[in-house]
Write a protein that binds this DNA or RNA. Sequence first.
RNA 1: GCUUCUGUAGCAGAAUCGGUACAUGCAUCUGUUUCAAAAACAGAAGUCUGAAGGUUCGACUCCUUCCAGAAGCACCA
Length: 870
Amino acid sequence: MASQYNPQDIEEKWQEHWESLGVYRAHDKSEKPKFYSLVMFPYPSGDLHMGHMRVYTISDVISRRMRMLGYNVLNPMGWDAFGLPAENAAIKHQKHPQNWTKENIRFMRDEQLKKLGTSYDWQREVTTCDADYYGWTQWLFLKFYEKGLAVRKEAPVNWCPDCHTVLANEQVVDGACWRHMETRVEQKKMSQWFLRITAYADELLDDLERLTGWPEPVRIMQQNWIGKSVGAELRFTVESKPNVQISVFTTRPDTVFGVSYVVLAPENPLVEELTTDEQRDAVRKYVDEAKHKTELDRMATEKSKTGIPLGTHVINPYNGDVVPILVADYVLMTYGTGAVMGVPAHDERDFQFAKNLNLPVKEVISPNGEASGELEAAYIEPGVLINSGEFNGLKNEDAKEKITEWAVDQACGSKRVNWRLRDWLISRQRYWGCPIPLVHCDACGIVPVKEADLPVVLPVEGIEITGQGGSPLTRMDSFLNVKCPACGKDAKRETDTMDTFIDSSWYFLRYADATNKKEAFAKANVDYWMPVDQYVGGIEHAILHLLYSRFFTKACRDVGLVTCDEPFENLLSQGMVTKFSSISGRIEKMSKSRGNVVGTTDFFKKYGADSARLFTLFAAPPEQELEWSEEGAIGQYRFLGRVWRIVTELIETGAVTAFHGEVVHDKLDESGKNFHKLVHKTIKAVSNDLERGRYIFNTAIARCMELVNGLYKYAQELNARSTNGNGKAAKSADGAALLAPQGHDLSTDELELLSFAIRNLLLLLAPMAPHISEELWKQAGYIVKDNDSIHVTAWPTFKEELTIDNQIELVLQVNGKIVNKVPAPRGLEKKAAEELALADDKMKSKIEGQAVKKVIVVPDKLVNVVVAPQ
RNA sequence: GCUUCUGUAGCAGAAUCGGUACAUGCAUCUGUUUCAAAAACAGAAGUCUGAAGGUUCGACUCCUUCCAGAAGCACCA
């Protein structure tokens, strides 16, 4: 009797074998076409759960299949190893961040990712907290610095009191820290390092259109994030101080005749200057209150917009109107010019504000060219200009252009494009990050560290991490004190480290040449592998990581390091894994804090990695959410058990052997022919489902299940026949009933068919369930040389003619309603199909006494007879 | 508030172009096997596609409105 399916007996054995053979190594030179398969590398937090495994499984299946299709596949893995959790863990467990990180990496690599059966080229493993990686991060920073892309600016920054550090705008979510949703971000003014991502704003926006292999929502999110708005900057002269002007940015210059006030942001320096003595106290009080409001509070006031007049006025250069200046906190200092013109008639916010403060509303755009009298709400639709002097009668879209031109002529304004995207603030007052390779010298100012002196090593010994009082680097003299690279005098190192998003903005380039000691990467290698052909990762990185990586790639291109414009050709955003949480009583994302995690170790021991992989792929399409279910996962274990049983029994009875030839279709009997066709149909369907960019794993697996069901049926049919039709199944040596027929009872053609079916079934399953398919591949006798493996065997092909049925079921409809289904030969001509339909008895009775108005024939599908009563 | 996505058997999910509504798994039921149960094997049942309109010979599929759920954005001038 064949053995039971026991994944523990086979999985680790094969994992070690593949590693020793180097099956998954990528080659920097090859005759084969290249395929760069990338999955977002993890932060080594310590323990992956089944929810995390989904993304690695998806990416692994893609890699394995492309390898079988004959591609030279690069499928690397590494660790996004700098970051705050390591410091927090250090404080909590009295462990150095480095040790904590390294231990986590070891566990996640050896006990989790490897045991999942992944096919990574571990020789290219990259760890961002290793000096041989971050030294090159520093080198890239210096290249950007030389190009003027890294700059130091005094800027109001977002400060998280919990992290004790500055955050990028991208890391502020609803006015709170992205790591501490309960912690409000404070505004501070500090001198900080920025990367000038805005220099690439146009290109980052325009190239989104070329990224057709990306999910539409991700492209839209990036587009919104970049936020290009085209308009004009207009200057209003202050009535009482003719040498002072207020600049406003507007996307609606066409409404300038409707301006009834101008508003400054509370932080705008002009506020103090333009406030009259009578208004001073009230204005100061208001500004003071606004400063203490967080952005959250400011948003909460959305419904009741507040503001205070400064007491001074500006002159509208277009019509000479004298309108008041106000300060209001709905205007942001950080966008545009920190001042706006108020046009209540044609802007919803301005309308609310004007109603609140009893300011006049002046209509200048009208749908039909006539004034509408009192407006109930702001009119923001297109229309024709009224009350606008020489511009009256123009369509407002045309007026935008004309009015801006007028401003240019009169030297009171210009065309302007504004971006929502800001420069990327990268300074972090943290220890566990990549040191910024610069030196502050009293004589020379800021001096870059010499290339030869890189890396600036992050000290590991003698560091005390308390989480208090900023980075420990600021208290470490041996790190701090350095000679100026320019003049040689005493100087101080920069103690800020870089945002960890920098580490992950170029790791995909390093993979192309991961062990290079002389360069960040050889250009030839990067040009060979880039761009990434298929990137897989979570939707949570739709903006930050992907935008930064795109920026880095373009900047590297301009430094001359790479050739490609875009790093990721195709992107798959997998959905999250959810499970019922007894804490919240709801189905939620799998996470430790929600208490709904399923660990990998226990599951792998009980059911094996192949079952975990299969369930993950099967339960939902990759982009959709997936609810983890123990029963469902066991179902996959059961399926693999069925595969194991039938294949091992067929081998045992001698019905299946290694077979490399083709089956002679015409020599098979009816059920043999049908089964042979099923094999070809399955190859076609699975190939189609796993096609580049389609990746519909759930249906691919369903097809394999169908094939296995068909195999059971066919095997038992043969078995019943071989026992002379007495209905009693053959018994194996230990007396258990066998499903499989005895090999000596079968014809050569039937033996070949069974062998052919098994060969293809295993090949189709190989990318998804790599261990069991390799084991059975071996048992069937396909592994002859030690370095044979199903995973380097060519993906199967099919014969198109064997995927087509000659007999089809023709559907007969009357007025679109089904009346009968009749068998018909494939390829029947329209005329013949029509005749067949009209001759059918059920059809006849349905259309009796009615006039046939039209007959619609869909070849090989249906005939629809349209009738009407006479 | 705005934008996008999703809604198909008890559950998850199939259904390339508009052309037979449901492949596959879970759960359920029946039978075989068993002293019995489990497992295994064999078989069965189930819906009219969130709602209402429209286009069409024909709509899960396209259009409109509404309902429900999820995600993103949210004073960006």
